[in-house]
Every structure is written in C-alpha cells, then in structure tokens.
C-alpha cells in the first residue's frame, strides 16, 4: 500500500506514476474537512468522490488540496463510474492542475471567511456577488464544495480575498469530536443525536443554525443535530442513517458542527 502526504508528494506526480504504471485501485485523500477518493482502472480515472462532490467536480477539488494524508489501495474497485476513461478526460484533468496553479488561496481550508475590513470600489460580477453573499461565516472548504464548482469557486474566492471583500479567521475551538455510535430505533432519518452539553458547546461555537458533519472511515454526511441528555461521548443515529453510512453501534466516528447553508 502506497501512502504519504500530498504536501511532500503532489497529486499530479502521484497520478502520473499510477497512470503510467496502468494501475487499478483507489487513492484515498483524507483532508481534515472531507474525505476524497480517486478510482483508477488500467491507469485511467473512472470515478472520484470528495465530500458531496462526484466525478470531475470531485477531481477539481482534490487537485487543489495543498496538503493531506493519502493512501493508495491497489485493486480496489470503484463503487460506480462517474468519469469517462479517455484521453480527453486526461487532458481536462491536466488543465485543472494548470488552473489551480494560478489560484492563491490559504492552505488551511478550515479557515472561516468573514466580511473584509475594506470595501474597495471595484465592480463585481453577478457570480462574484453570489459567492460573496454565500461565503461569509463559512469555511473555505465549504464554499469550494458548494456552487459554483470548485475551480470556479476557488478563482472567485481568491479574487475576493485579494481585493479585501473577504477576510479569513481561524475557527477557534472547532475540532472534530470522536464519538461512539449508538443505535436509535424508529423511523427517524438525517438526525445526529448528541449530548445536550456538547450541543450547547457547538451552539456557542457556530453562530446561527448549524448542522453536524459526521465522518466515518469511508463516508461523510451532514445531519440535523438534536440534543438529548445522558449521551456523553455518543452519537445517536437512526437505523436508516446507520445503513446509509455503513455504521453499526460501537463504531468510532468524527463529528463537528458546521453552519447551516
């Protein structure tokens, strides 16, 4: 199994090696804020996932990741096909790498965006205004995983940051909590039940309504938080969500709050 960090072994180089050797398998990229995976078959990209994104949108995001641990699992089949394995796709991905080289974004995508201190007299396009309106209070990674697609969003964000329309601030105190899954019965769905004390702590960290992002070994989900007493160290999930996230009682997961979009 091949593993390392993209900071030392850039993704372009990594893909060149794997594609050149006509390898098949899955390249997992574990960014602190989302999980990514690129699946290869006979040296061709056939599928990619990054948080909620799939296909070429996912590769767009993953190509921009400056640093994150990765591991390659040979012969791991793709769960589905979202990328056409062809030379034109190959060229498109090379173009994505080229485009990311021009973009200057903070390396820490966990930083929170806030309104800039200066308001320069520059006319913004409708897209830039839309991103500006959406970005405040969110992490860089969240904006990149929303709309518009990652590369376009990164270009707009980089411009807004450069012009001072946006600034960044660290998200103090928000680090993933390691919780143990507890099964809940009934017809509930899309709900993450946490201890009321943790709920209050998260509420204090994230202004306004928030959701809970749950990361398992392979999957991620954004769930509606619900507080209950006597749940210390636990994350209550209904049976439907347990099946969807391929979880069972007693499994350790990471969870953290994020502003509701």
């Amino acid at each position: 199994m091949l593993s390392g960090n993209l900071a030392e072994f850039p993704l372009l180089r990594l893909l060149e090696v794997l594609m050149g050797a006509t390898r098949g398998g899955a390249l997992f990229i574990q960014h602190p804020l989302f999980l990514g995976a690129i699946y290869l078959q006979n040296g061709y990209l056939v599928h990619a996932e990054a948080g909620p994104l799939k296909g070429l949108e996912a590769t767009e995001l993953l190509i921009g990741v400056p640093a994150a641990p990765f591991r390659f699992e040979a012969n791991r089949p793709a769960p589905s096909q979202s990328i056409e394995p062809s030379l034109s796709t190959h060229q498109l991905i090379l173009h994505q790498f080229e485009a990311w080289r021009e973009i200057r974004l903070p390396e820490d995508w966990g930083l929170t965006l806030r309104g800039g201190s200066s308001q320069p007299r520059v006319q913004l396009s409708p897209l830039e205004l839309r991103v500006l309106a959406q970005a405040e209070g969110k992490r860089i990674a969240q904006v990149l995983m929303g709309h518009p697609p990652p590369l376009e969003a990164a270009q707009v964000l980089a411009k807004l940051l450069k012009l001072g329309f946006l600034g960044v601030q660290p998200q103090p105190g928000i680090s993933p909590e390691t919780l143990v899954v507890l099964s809940l019965y009934g017809k509930g769905e899309g709900v993450a039940v946490v201890d009321e004390e943790l709920f209050e702590r998260w509420q204090a960290l994230v202004p306004g309504p928030f959701r809970v992002r749950v990361r398992t070994h392979r999957l991620e989900a954004s769930l509606h938080p619900e507080a209950r007493p006597h749940m210390q160290g636990r994350l209550g999930l209904f049976e439907t969500d347990l099946r969807r996230l391929q979880l069972s009682r007693g499994v350790w997961v990471e969870a953290w709050p994020e502003p509701q979009t």
């Binding site: 143990v180 019965y185 006597h230 009682r249």
Partner: peptide, 20 residues
C-alpha cells in the same frame, strides 16, 4: 435480537460510560 445486539453485541463498549 435487538436485546442481544444491545448487550452482548455491544460488549466491546463495556468501558464506555454516560450518565449514572
């Protein structure tokens, strides 16, 4: 079945505590 899953099935969590 649920009872066994919630008890013997969760025995690896025997050191976890909450409330009480």
């Amino acid at each position: 079945g649920v009872a066994l899953r919630e008890t013997l099935g969760a025995i690896r969590e025997r050191s976890l505590s909450f409330g009480g």
